[in-house]
């Protein structure tokens, strides 16, 4: 019987308990252990902490003070945040318009592909599975030139020209659409693999029982597999959202030079340094603004994210 993936196994719990008991006797080792762990926390958080402090400092203050100390009195300012939000606002909207549909689509397509190649079992599926999985490891440089050619030939903006007259529609959405399609296509391999591993853990007998109950393959997906996929959808959606939100390369290649009106937040953040604002405080504030959605997702669903990367 398949159940949603459980946390640490009972064995590991008992092992941890036993180890913990043994270790309590050696207090000194314990203290050293926590000291090391704490130092490592410092190591991982230092760049973020220094960045956060800097983002609240005036140019004058960060030029003179120690980077990781908080700003003092007149050195404190919110100006960098105001600038960062102003400069990145459009990018945030674009990234959201891009990441949400691309995430949902790539997860959905990965799920049905994995169902068709895992739960429905047929003889010569391995080569196709291999092609899906190998797609994860492709260096994107190998497809950049064709991608730029493709979107030079397929002019989404004119093809969908009827849409741009509608309310709430803007012409630069065409570029975002191109990016969505691209991200969906390159996201399918990883979502496929995640779902495939999950579906392999399903009990065969359960699927067979459904067949004998008279359920068609569509009904089995709709009534059995899909409802049971919820935990894996959480993992996949979170993982894909961070990946797509964080991407820079495809946006650089597919969007018109400089990103234009369709630039996602990563492109906008990168432009912050070269453009108007040279100051580190604004750049740091910008980095946090751009990272905010993924940080929120990560803090709320860190467990699922860990599961996504571990598989």
């Amino acid at each position: 019987m398949s159940s949603p993936p459980a946390g640490p196994t009972p064995e590991s719990n008992t092992r941890r308990e036993r180890l913990a008991r043994a270790a309590r006797n050696a207090d000194r080792t314990r203290i050293a252990l926590y000291a090391v762990l704490g130092a490592l926390v410092g190591f991982y958080l230092a760049p973020l902490e220094a960045g956060l402090m800097t983002a609240f400092k005036t140019t004058d203050a960060f030029n003179r003070s120690v980077p990781f100390l908080p700003p003092i009195a007149e050195g404190f300012t919110l100006e960098p945040w105001r600038v960062a939000f102003r400069e990145l606002w459009n990018g945030l909207i674009n990234s959201l318009l891009l990441a949400v549909p691309a995430t949902v689509l790539s997860a959905g397509l990965g799920s049905i592909a994995a169902y068709g190649l895992t739960t429905i079992d047929w003889k010569y599926q391995m080569p196709i599975v291999a092609l899906f999985v190998a797609g994860i490891f492709i260096p994107y440089q190998a497809v950049l030139v064709p991608l730029s050619r493709l979107f030079a030939i397929v002019d989404t903006q004119s093809l969908l020209s009827v849409l741009w007259g509608l309310p709430l529609m803007e012409e630069h959405y065409a570029s975002i659409l191109n990016l969505i399609v691209t991200h969906v296509a390159y996201g399918i391999p990883i979502t496929f693999l995640l779902f495939r591993a999950y579906y392999q853990s399903f009990s065969n007998e359960m699927i067979e029982a459904a067949k004998l109950d008279g359920a068609s393959v569509f009904s089995i997906y709709r009534n059995i597999v899909l409802p049971l996929s919820k935990p894996m959808f959480a993992v996949t959606l979170i993982y894909q959202f961070t990946q797509i939100w964080n991407d820079l390369l495809f946006a650089l290649v597919i969007l018109p030079s400089g990103g234009g009106a369709a630039a996602p937040v990563t492109v906008a953040l990168n432009a912050l340094s070269g453009g108007i604002v040279q100051s580190f405080n604004t750049q740091m504030a910008g980095a946090f603004v751009a990272a905010l959605p993924t940080l929120i997702v990560y803090v709320l669903f860190g467990e699922q994210f860990a599961k996504g990367v571990a598989s």
């Binding site: 019987m1 009990s203 007998e205 359960m206 067979e208 029982a209 004998l212």
Partner: peptide, 16 residues
């Protein structure tokens, strides 16, 4: 699907 046969499995195979 169409055999009109019901089966009881060793693992019971209930839909969780």
């Amino acid at each position: 699907t169409t055999r009109d046969i019901a089966m009881v499995f060793q693992s019971y195979a209930l839909y969780p």
